Simulated assay, not measured.
Amino acid sequence: MKTTTVNSLIAIEKVESEAWLDMYAAAPDSYVTSSKTSYARLGTSVGLADQGVPIAEFNRVLGLGIAEPLSEEGLDQAIAWMNEHASELYSLQIPPTALPDMIHEWIQAKGFKRTGRGWAKYYRDSMPVESHPMPTTLEVRLVEPHHATDFGYAAQVGFGFPESLISWFSALAGRPKWRVYVAYEANHPVACGAMFIDKNWAWLGIDATLPDYRGRGAQNALIKQRLTDGIALGVTGFTAETGQPPEGQEDTNKSYCNYHRAGFNRVYVRPNYMKVD
């Protein structure tokens, strides 16, 4: 792969931010009310909050300092919004292109600490997609709105989320910029994956497989189908992310290996900063 440019790194962050922002905008009113879900553009960054799902994936700030240098006042405003709306377990995610460099110092001075191993961010261009050496027997289908609950069900069960999230994930089927896919055994939904396309960039996410069907190649097939369809639609840059495995153990992480096998390369690890008690 060619060296990833700064503009590409910024685009990787932007398309992910826009995907999550639009996903929150799609949440049904009943879910928003019951789970206390909210989202906002915080200057050039994005704030996501879901008190009903108190994990960092659903409670975080993305894109701090990527479109233009962040001011300390802007950081304070983002933190204040999160303190008001998000679960206590929220995170601030800082990409390598964030400006100014002192963002990390500001965050730590405000009581935040880098936690965990961070998120591995991947990039892939539009080179042809190769077939997996061991094709799955599962059938991957693009989900139309009348089968939306198949996607919602696979995502909810695959991730082990509350049943209330079925309606939220289902709302993405047929939504502009989104294409959602399900892997079926016969007509039973057993795995899923989504693709959000904004201009010529695509974000791949919501990759989930029911426990009894893991290890059968569903995610390899779902990644291939999304890449194939995205390339046909004119996408030139794809991105995705997984948790960063421990050093030296990357080959034991299935999600990490699935994306590398599909031609993605890890371009950076994005740290999470969380409030220290």
Rank of each mutant, 00 (worst) to 15 (best):
L62H: 07
G65E: 02
A67I: 01
L70D: 01
E72N: 13
E73A: 15
G74W: 10
A78F: 06
I79R: 00
A80Y: 03
W81K: 07
M82L: 14
M82A: 03
N83C: 12
S87E: 09
Y90L: 06
Y90R: 02
I94K: 00
P95H: 09
P95V: 07
P96K: 15
T97P: 06
M102F: 03
H104Y: 09
E105W: 04
W106D: 04
W106C: 12
Q108E: 15
A109H: 01
K110W: 00
F112C: 06
R117L: 05
G118N: 06
W119N: 05
W119F: 13
K121E: 11
K121G: 07
Y122E: 07
Y123A: 15
R124E: 10
D125M: 08
D125H: 12
M127V: 14
P128V: 05
V129C: 12
E130I: 14
S131Y: 03
H132A: 13
M134W: 07
T136R: 09
L138G: 01
E139W: 00
E139Q: 10
E139T: 15
V140N: 10
R141V: 08
L142Y: 04
L142Q: 08
L142C: 11
L142W: 04
V143W: 05
V143K: 05
H146K: 13
H146Q: 12
H147C: 03
T149Y: 09
D150K: 05
G152K: 05
Y153L: 10
Y153E: 12
A155R: 03
Q156V: 09
Q156W: 02
V157L: 10
P162N: 08
S164D: 15
I166N: 09
